[in-house]
Structures are given as structure tokens and as C-alpha cells.
């Protein structure tokens, strides 16, 4: 059979072209720009590692960077420790045999995931607002009125509250992925264990959980990439300043401010590129770790 290379090229060209021009090359160019500096006239010149030295060692810059980094880590750990376990519990319950209405539960719980982060952010901002008093009123009904506080406005709790809002919105993703993995567990293994007299509890811990570990790994890395690239929620609820007092600043908002400037500080594309490069390295480290430890056991996801 004749296989002329030109038709292969025609099939590949549009995708490779658009992807290269608008995704891969800009990414590479950003990594390059991180080594340049912008002068007051707007021209750029090679500056070696000086941007990175500034970000990591200049007191004003490094405080902001490490604050954003640390906040981002907290943001991720809250997701990891709350979103994924809740997703696992919901998926496990949904996959129970003979459960009535499983489809409806699944559909409804997944709903918030579809909505824009911006819309979700505003909705929760209203609900948690002391001005409206919905949360306070609800808490009063169960006798917890004294525990209400303007969580989104306090330095000590704003970041945690935002992370929980994000968990609330995105719990549908781990739920769906784990649910699908649980359905794929071969029925005969479970049946055999049951015949051997294993309890449902033991079947879950010793058969199902090990089999869905790759999915838990996938969920974790998806969450990691999503969190270290997050921006929309913080920006819409707290603005680019990520208040109060930068307590909700994460790498995405820091990147935005560095690039576009804010208040008295002038934005800098090259400094922005340096921050983006650091974000890239963080994400690369996470993805690398994932592939090193998890992917080896997981043949189906390989490409």
C-alpha cells in the first residue's frame, strides 16, 4: 500500500501549527524572557539570572514570592486533604450495588463543577457576607450563631475559606474519576472475596482501594496542576491585591500583578515571565514526581 507522507503532513499540519504558535512556542519564549530585563524605555536586554536573584533574594520580592508560594501550598493541601477524601467517600457510596437514585445524586453533585469559578466565588461571597446574614441565620438555627465570623474578610481565615469554596466546587471531579475506576473493578474478584467471607469493609480496603490507587494519583496531580495555576477565584473574590494584607495571594495572582503592575508598581513582562517560569518549575516538579512514582504502575495512561 502506498503511504505518501504528504497526506500525513496535511492531517497533522493544522493541529501542530496552532498548538505550536499559540501554546508551545509562547511557553518556550516565556522561559527565554525570564532571562531578560526591561529598561525604562521598554527595550529588553539579556540579564542572566538577575530576575530570579531579585525574586528570590531581594527582601521586598522574596517576601511576596514565598508568601504566595506558601499560600499556594496551603491551598493545595486543603484540596488534597478534604476534596479527595470527600470525593472518595461519595464515589464509594455511589458505586454501591442496588443504590436507588445513584444517577440523580451523581448528576446533582457534579453541577457546581460546571459553573464558572468567578460565578461560584461571587455566590459564596454573598452567602458568607455578614451584610446578608444567610450563614449567620442558618448557624443560629442550630445554635452556632456565636461561631459566625466574616471568614472571607479575616486575614487568618480568608485563604482557608477560599480553598474550601474551591473544594466545594470541584469535588465532582475526583468523585467522577474514582467512581469510574470503582466501576471498572472486575466483578468476579469482588464476588470471590465475598464468597471467601471477606466483609464489605475489608473488600474495600484490601481489594478496591489498591486497584483505584492510580486514579487517586491522577486526581492528585490534576489537583496539583490546577491549584498551582489557579487565579480566577482569588481574583474575582479578592481582586489582584489578594487581600486582606496579601493573605490570599497565590502564584497566579502574583504573576498577574508582576506582569501588569498594580497601584504604584509598574508591570514588567520580563519579571512576569520569570514568575511564570518559577510556576512552570513547580508544576514540572509535581508532574515529574507523579510520572516517576505513579505512572510506572499505570500502563493504560501512557501515551
Amino acid at each position: 500500500m502506498k503511504r505518501m507522507p504528504w497526506h500525513i503532513a496535511v492531517f497533522l499540519a493544522p493541529a501542530v501549527l496552532v498548538y505550536s504558535v499559540f501554546s508551545a512556542l509562547p511557553l518556550l519564549d516565556t522561559l527565554r524572557l525570564g532571562f531578560y530585563a526591561t529598561t525604562d524605555t521598554g527595550s529588553t536586554h539579556f540579564a542572566g539570572l538577575s530576575n530570579y536573584l531579585t525574586i528570590l533574594t531581594d527582601p521586598a520580592w522574596s517576601a511576596a514570592f514565598w508568601n504566595a508560594m506558601w499560600n499556594n501550598c496551603k491551598f493545595f493541601f486543603i484540596h488534597l486533604l478534604i476534596q479527595n477524601p470527600i470525593g472518595l467517600v461519595l464515589a464509594t457510596l455511589l458505586s454501591l450495588k442496588g443504590l436507588k437514585g445513584a444517577r440523580h445524586y451523581r448528576t446533582l453533585i457534579f453541577l457546581p463543577t460546571l459553573l464558572s469559578v468567578v460565578i461560584i466565588g461571587f455566590i459564596w461571597q454573598l452567602i458568607l457576607s455578614p451584610l446578608w446574614g444567610v450563614s449567620e441565620g442558618l448557624m443560629a438555627k442550630v445554635g452556632l450563631a456565636d461561631y459566625f465570623a466574616p471568614w472571607l474578610g479575616q486575614e487568618s481565615s480568608a485563604l482557608i475559606t477560599l480553598a474550601l469554596i474551591s473544594v466545594w466546587q470541584f469535588v465532582g471531579i475526583p468523585m467522577m474519576l474514582i467512581y469510574a475506576a470503582l466501576l471498572a473493578v472486575p466483578e468476579d474478584i469482588v464476588e470471590a472475596a465475598h464468597v471467601e467471607g471477606a466483609s464489605a469493609w475489608r473488600i474495600f480496603w484490601e481489594i478496591k482501594l489498591p486497584l483505584i490507587l492510580p486514579t487517586l494519583g491522577l486526581v492528585t496531580i490534576l489537583t496539583f496542576v490546577g491549584n498551582f495555576n489557579a487565579f480566577d477565584l482569588i481574583y474575582s473574590v479578592k481582586g489582584a491585591i489578594a487581600g486582606p494584607n496579601y493573605s490570599t495571594d497565590i502564584l497566579g495572582t502574583l504573576f498577574y500583578r508582576t506582569f501588569f503592575g498594580y497601584q504604584s508598581q509598574v508591570g514588567s513582562p520580563t519579571m512576569g515571565a520569570a514568575v511564570a517560569t518559577l510556576m512552570f518549575l513547580v508544576i514540572l516538579a509535581g508532574v515529574g514526581t507523579y510520572f516517576y512514582f505513579v505512572q510506572r504502575k499505570l500502563t493504560r495512561y501512557e501515551l
Binding site: V16, P26, D29, N229, P269, A276, M279, I283
Partner: peptide, 19 residues
């Protein structure tokens, strides 16, 4: 082509805007 699955396109924003 698969790199784009894991690396968010947002990181290239500086150069995308320039382009």
C-alpha cells in the same frame, strides 16, 4: 503534543499577549 495536557497554557501568557 501531550506536553500541553499537563503544562497550563497560562504560563505562556506574557509571550501570547506579545504575539
Amino acid at each position: 503534543l501531550a506536553i500541553g495536557i499537563m503544562v497550563p497554557i497560562r504560563l505562556g501568557t506574557v509571550s501570547i499577549l506579545e504575539l
